[in-house]
Amino acid sequence: MRIEIRDLRHTYPTGEEALKGVSFTIEGVTPVAVVGQNGSGKTTLVKHFNRILSPTSGAVLIDGVETTKQSTAKWSKRVGYVFQNPDDQLFLNSVRKEFEFGPERVGVPAADIQKRLPEIAELCGLGDKLDSHTFDLTATQKKFCAIGSVMMMDPDVIIFDEPTCGQDVEGSRRLSEIIGHLEKRGKLCVTISHDMKFVAANFPRVVALCHGRVLIDGDSREVFAKPELLKKSFVSPPPISRVSLGMGFEKPAFSVDELVETMKARRRKMA
């Protein structure tokens, strides 16, 4: 999998310049998080990956093919996109129908659909909810119904827009599981998020945008080690990283256990 972004610029019809020349390349299946304050161009950027938006200038290439070569519906077989609000996607009267809808649209054989269905339902925690009305689901379950309905299309890349928004612990945990599962199956996951705890825990690579340009792009540990730079895009490192930096450690810790281990090591060295 290779997504190449070449000097991408996008100006909305209102004259608003949302992207002012963004270039970077995503290779392989390591999950990537795109962060930055509202208006930094995150959503505009990822909407180019399946041609919901077309570049004003520059290009996005998926495995060498320019995205403008075919329609969004055609791209949906390869690039899945989960919108922030599940209500924008769901309208059928059962989870099962929602799951079958996408793959049917792009001509996946019925036998394949039925084969995928139980596994994805299980991953999304909706195994016993397949025949429930989507309206009777909780906010968390609805979100996973939307995620599952995109996973059912078995795309090579899945884009998540603010997946943890409004989620509880259980939801965030399940999301991490899904991201791990996708990577194992050789699928690339690109996520927009404000939730730095979630980003630090799941995404080895972080791209921070600011006013339509790339502010920092790199390994998440290096990115979160620069709180001063991140402030420009109103992003602050996750709480535990801030604690470790505040304690004087050079590298930000990403989990409580990790920080405690580092502390133990420090104590041993001092003893």
Partner: peptide
Amino acid sequence: LKYIPKRL
């Protein structure tokens, strides 16, 4: 209308 759940 068929899709609108009874609850609503």
